[in-house]
Design a protein around this nucleic acid. Structure first.
Lengths: 293, 293
DNA sequence: TATGTTTACGCTATGCGTAAGAATC
DNA sequence: GATTCTTACGCATAGCGTAAACATA
């Protein structure tokens, strides 16, 4: 019995097929078949019922699964507790929503690289909707996104909220929301949809909205006089300084809630640790700027 | 990280030396060095302090040890619970005291072979003193001996006691213990030593004792008229039928207590199971013959 | 035929033992 | 110099991927 055999067996059990497990593990499908066959031979008992659509666990397979999960969890704990962080070698595929990029991501990356210098970090900036998807297909280990991700398999570490604010070009002193376009997040994000609903409730259907998948582009549009913007307050203080102003039309959209989310099963100790670190950095950042909550 | 590496590390930790671990595992000493080196490289941290006299665990080594023991215990549990007994392939090196051989060993072996047909059983019959020793140097997996073995590393499963009795040759109606030799167990066994003390307390130093490392030889000596014997009562009923008689000199030695003993750390699931089975068989046997307790 | 498995087979790289080297008392 | 661990090196083989065969709906 080897740990690779157990790990392979668990992927087969989790994904319900040898082919799928092979794909997940980036090895050939016969290699998985072989590992399972060796494990079965070693234990002298059948673990899988092979059928047309994938595989089912036998009674022994079910029992093995429990133990195997425990074992691999212990292995994870070894990596988390025994290995000094500065020696930890791994790849962390990190997905980040742009709002985070523009506020405290640099501090977070700095801290992460300081404590885990041998960890390679691979960053994808995307809208939360896509980040969530990539979390599920396991092409991301950790996502800093508009959360939480409500799925039983995902662990969410709550991050501080971002208070929203209205921004206008300097020239436009008293914007009339029924006549000026409102610029905000990407069409497929929650804040965009919420904002549209609220605008329609208050001002009817005549409202014109622009959406931008890039925050800085959105701010640029506001600064250029194309309309007013609804963005996190803290970002306005550092983007387009002097070219935009905050204003109060009498109401505010809800603050944006973010989370650091990762797959909890199988547990990735590094992702868990990084998520906690993200929370710490974000809280410190919020305390300094004093504005996010 | 592989299970072999963890197992090897544990032996090094337990025995305090790479050479000793190699000896224990029946592999070359550089092989052990290499496994440890690979494990250290994998975890990116030093696990052992190499010194002149064996090795010491580092802080990380101590932490790893705990987790590794847990992991290998889980592996043991898999073998014990997931594998059907009839498919369990293993070698059980069994040490047995002759008293057991002469009473219920055959039933025990029969049951063991029935439930675990693929397990190879290797039997050594010896006096308990030597069995105990071979348990410690790990050349025995399980010993059925006069117990218990009082050592923190040994698990003892209590077996039914054997009541003792006095036997005489048919011809010698009323033996005088001060004049007739007393025949019993091997010189280095506890019952022999206890018996000698009691005889000296009661009759002074004049007592003559014969000892036999073979029970059947001891009975033969009694039958042949060389002296009286002190042996488990149940054995007298089947050995030398008709040629010996029980008698009562007014006192009895203490009953013999036996145990099924095995090393508890690292735990051997098969030995543990066999020990329980020995207890069951022995209790049934005692109930049938009705004489042992 | 489409899907998912096992079997067959050549090849690479891991990990063994032997033998020699290095360190420590 | 005795003891114990590491390094060096040739070699066997465990386990990989490719390709083909097999099973089942």
């Amino acid at each position: 019995m080897t740990l690779e055999q157990l790990r392979t067996f668990l992927w087969v059990a989790r994904l319900g097929g040898i082919r799928r497990a092979a794909q997940q593990m980036n090895i050939s499908q016969p290699a998985v078949s072989n590992r399972i066959a060796l494990l079965e031979a070693d234990l002298g008992t059948q673990l899988l019922d092979r059928s047309r659509k994938g595989v089912m666990l036998t009674k022994q397979g079910v029992m093995l699964r429990t133990h195997a999960e425990q074992i691999l969890q212990s292995v994870e704990r070894i990596r988390a507790e025994v290995v000094p962080p500065e020696n930890m070698t791994a790849l962390l595929r990190l997905g980040v929503a742009e709002t985070i990029v523009q506020s405290w991501l640099p501090e977070f990356l700095g801290r992460l690289r300081a404590t885990h210098p041998r960890v390679t970090i691979e960053i994808s900036v995307d809208i939360s909707r896509n980040l969530r998807e990539h979390l599920f297909d396991r092409t991301l280990d950790l996502a800093l996104l508009m959360g939480p991700v409500s799925d039983y398999s995902v662990e969410n570490v709550e991050l501080p909220e971002f208070a929203m604010a209205w921004f206008r070009p300097v020239a436009l002193e008293k914007p009339d929301l029924t006549r000026v376009p409102v610029i905000s997040y990407h069409r497929q994000t929650r804040p965009y949809l919420e904002l549209r609903t609220q605008l329609q409730d208050r001002y009817g259907n005549g409202i014109q909205m622009f959406s931008s998948s890039s925050l800085s582009a959105g701010f640029e549009m506001v600064a250029a006089g194309l309309g007013v913007g609804v963005f996190p307050r803290v970002l306005g203080e550092r983007m387009q300084p002097g070219r935009i102003r905050e204003f109060d039309p009498g109401w505010m959209p809800r603050p944006l809630s973010f989370s650091a989310s990762y797959i909890g099963h199988p547990r990735d100790a590094l992702a868990a640790r990084a998520a906690q670190m993200a929370r710490e950095v974000a809280l410190e950042h919020a305390a300094e700027t004093g504005a996010e909550t």
